[in-house]
Simulated assay, not measured.
Amino acid sequence: MSRRRLPAALLAAVTLWCTARAPSMAPAMTAEPKDLLVVGAGVLGRRVAKLWRQEMPQAKVVAATLTEAHHGELREEGLEPILASDLDKSRRFAQVVFCAPPSRSSDYGAAVAEALAALAEGGMAVFTSSASVFAEDSGQTVDESGALSDSSSAQRMLSAEAAVAGKGAVLRLAGLYDLDRGPHSYWLKVGVVKGAPAGLINLVHYDDAASAVVKALQAKIREVFVVADGQPLSRREICEAAVASKRYGEKATMPRFEAPAELPMGGANGKRLDAGKARQQLGWQPRYASFAEFMAAH
């Protein structure tokens, strides 16, 4: 017995209905080439978003956060806030930046890997790591090839770096600061510095760190970079520069220094970070040459 063929119009309708009933077969949303996802829209993440929108006015910037506490502020800044837990896996981004601190995650490497699931094929990611992963503590110069620490905090950060391998750049940032944030603010507030006065601290302004992130996104070099202003200061020099500034000078006094056997803010001598690779390959230059220069102007 021969089979009867369905009329062409009915066959087309059945095909359309079947397609509509199979959403799992739909392709992921195409990534817009200039759009950016920032995971961890805190002080640094928001500055990255602002700078990206200045350079790419037509770009959409999505800010993923753990809570909705600052979503109103993010909308006022022209960003699209979203809970990190609500990231749509069918939505892809040509650029992804991860700025969330390790203190907010029990498995930092997994958190980074999960965020990178939103990266489009061939897209560019940037992970903001820390120069604290280096083992050097004798005051010598360190670049990207420096020996790495085996401390638990360093290993946690390195596991997150590993999740980015091949997908983007890792920026090992020096200590971040602005006028009201950084080691100087904390030390002057508590009146005690838990560390040797002569121990070196490497710094970079939040704005300069943000510009390094944007440069890395644009350069699309999937390697590790050290980011620092190149002018490490001792703990004492940092405090002296802050106390001499207009912002702190009228009410701040020099804190006292304590150097216990275990130093939470770093070792006795510290290190000198060499950011030459970032300057040469990313074309990055810090706007603020040093913490002392910045504070002198404020």
Rank of each mutant, 00 (worst) to 15 (best):
E80F: 12
V214A: 07
S105G: 05
C239T: 10
Q231D: 12
A69G: 14
W17K: 14
K251W: 12
G146I: 00
K271L: 13
G109Y: 09
G122A: 07
A216N: 09
L6K: 14
E258A: 14
E262P: 13
K194C: 12
Q155Y: 11
V61M: 02
L87Q: 12
V62G: 03
L203P: 13
H298D: 10
Q155S: 08
A94D: 07
D274Q: 05
S2N: 12
F93L: 05
A210W: 02
A100I: 02
M265S: 04
E161G: 09
M25I: 11
A63M: 10
A165W: 02
S151C: 03
A174K: 08
L119Q: 01
K194E: 14
Q140R: 13
A252V: 02
C18A: 15
G283D: 07
G249F: 12
E250H: 13
F257N: 09
R104A: 11
A8M: 04
A160M: 12
R91Q: 12
C18R: 15
K60Y: 06
S211A: 11
A196I: 03
L263P: 00
A259T: 11
R3P: 08
I201L: 15
P23R: 04
R4C: 13
M56F: 13
K34G: 14
D86M: 06
A268H: 07
P264D: 05
L273W: 14
P102Y: 03
A59Y: 02
A163W: 05
A84L: 14
A125N: 05
T253K: 15
R104M: 08
R272N: 08
A147I: 04
F127W: 12
E262T: 07
G166Y: 07
E258G: 07
L6S: 11
M124L: 00
V96T: 01
A292K: 03
Q54R: 15
M25F: 15
P264M: 12
A160H: 11
R91I: 02
A113S: 11
V227Y: 03
V190G: 06
R287H: 12
W17C: 10
L179R: 12
D88W: 01
K246G: 03
Q58I: 11
R21I: 02
E262R: 00
D229E: 02
Q95V: 00
Q140F: 09
A163L: 13
G199W: 15
R4M: 06
R47E: 15
A8W: 03
M56A: 01
V62E: 01
E77F: 09
L79T: 01
P101C: 04
D180R: 06
Y206V: 04
D35T: 02
A8L: 10
P264K: 01
G266R: 03
A160T: 01
G139I: 00
R91L: 01
L158P: 01
H184Q: 12
V193I: 14
R104H: 02
E68I: 00
V164Q: 09
P183M: 06
A259M: 06
A162E: 10
Q155E: 10
E262H: 01
Y108N: 06
V190W: 09
I221A: 13
S153E: 09
E293Y: 05
G276A: 13
E77T: 03
K189L: 02
W52D: 07
S90G: 09
V126N: 10
A278S: 13
K60C: 04
A110S: 00
R236I: 01
D207Q: 12
G40H: 05
V96M: 06
R5A: 14
K246Q: 10
A28I: 13
K167Q: 04
K34P: 14
I201P: 15
V133K: 13
A210D: 06
A28Y: 05
